[in-house]
Design a protein around this nucleic acid. Sequence first.
DNA 1: CAGGGCATATGAACGATGTCAATATTGGAG
DNA 2: CTCCAATATTGACATCGTTCATATGCCCTG
Lengths: 192, 192
Amino acid sequence: MIRSYHHGALAEAMVDQALASVRAQGADHVSLRSIAQALDVSPSAAYNHFADKDDLLRSVGSCGLAALDERMARVLAAHPADTADAARSRFTGLGRAYLGFAIDETHLFQLTFGPICMAKQLPPGESGPYIKLTASLDDLDRRGLLKPGIRPGLDLTVWAATHGMATLLVEGAVPPESADGFIESIANLITK
Amino acid sequence: MIRSYHHGALAEAMVDQALASVRAQGADHVSLRSIAQALDVSPSAAYNHFADKDDLLRSVGSCGLAALDERMARVLAAHPADTADAARSRFTGLGRAYLGFAIDETHLFQLTFGPICMAKQLPPGESGPYIKLTASLDDLDRRGLLKPGIRPGLDLTVWAATHGMATLLVEGAVPPESADGFIESIANLITK
DNA sequence: CAGGGCATATGAACGATGTCAATATTGGAG
DNA sequence: CTCCAATATTGACATCGTTCATATGCCCTG
């Protein structure tokens, strides 16, 4: 089939194209129609695979979350897990990966953690990034590297701090150079 | 003039109406046309006073920032500034005001700190809320209540943390009940 | 192999939106 | 009183998300 009437894998193709468009222009400036046009498909074809434009964007957001998770996974794979120094490196590495994602993939970050995707999606407590954060804090705690008595609720505190810094970076409220210092600052606050 | 041809104060009226609409439905679901219709004015009348829809929304965002600043100012006015205990109360009070604004005025918060308003606006380092935060940290520092050596860069760290928690609250990623515990957790991390 | 059903795509249409150009109205300064 | 500049209107355009009726073709049944 040279150019079959049926596309065959429209769903994936649309997510891919939407992902590229979001990366390039940001979710607000991406139209269903332009995505369809890029795939040589009629605009209404999308509705066989997605309920909404928002439904499609949510799929793109999942890719964003996966991309972030992969960055964090790479950090864990790169650092050995044995020494105590490594425990701290793993923690700061995870933080830098989070902020790096925000800096490198501004638009995708905005979609992934924006209102469209956050509503009606899995509780972030079960997402890969959050689990990795929790595990890293547990690791620090097990080795006695945390300041005493601060472990309860620390997940949320650190997550909020990192996520907040990421949004400030994304909005240009703060220059990218401040990212590393911020991570170091967090690490200094929670470790002895 | 009973119903003059000219409105007379369209600019302010549109900001007021837009503010109300944003509070009710969120900035994404507010249209220029509906605002104009609510004021019995033609849609294009707006363009005598605002360059864009975004330009109008930026004015609404300024109101949001002002509302937040007022909440924080009320906290400072309510707490006496003399005792050392009060210094800590002022700090946590400021944080609670910030999160309270996010919880009570979800939509307005999203607009005020969203991409539309953050771009092309005053650097947040000069905004009322940020200045109040800095002053509060200086106060704690002056009284020797901060952990030693952490003051440099603390503004950014605390701001990011609080702002991050606010966005998580706003997106429903975290329940409102966790707000107070979060503030306490931050205070415990930075004070002796 | 024939044929029919079902998932998939099309096309035209609707209502709404942001924006602009041309025109009309008015209050107030000279 | 007259005329101007500010302000509003009208009408139009392109674009958007979405829906409905219709067309297409692949696979499964007989």
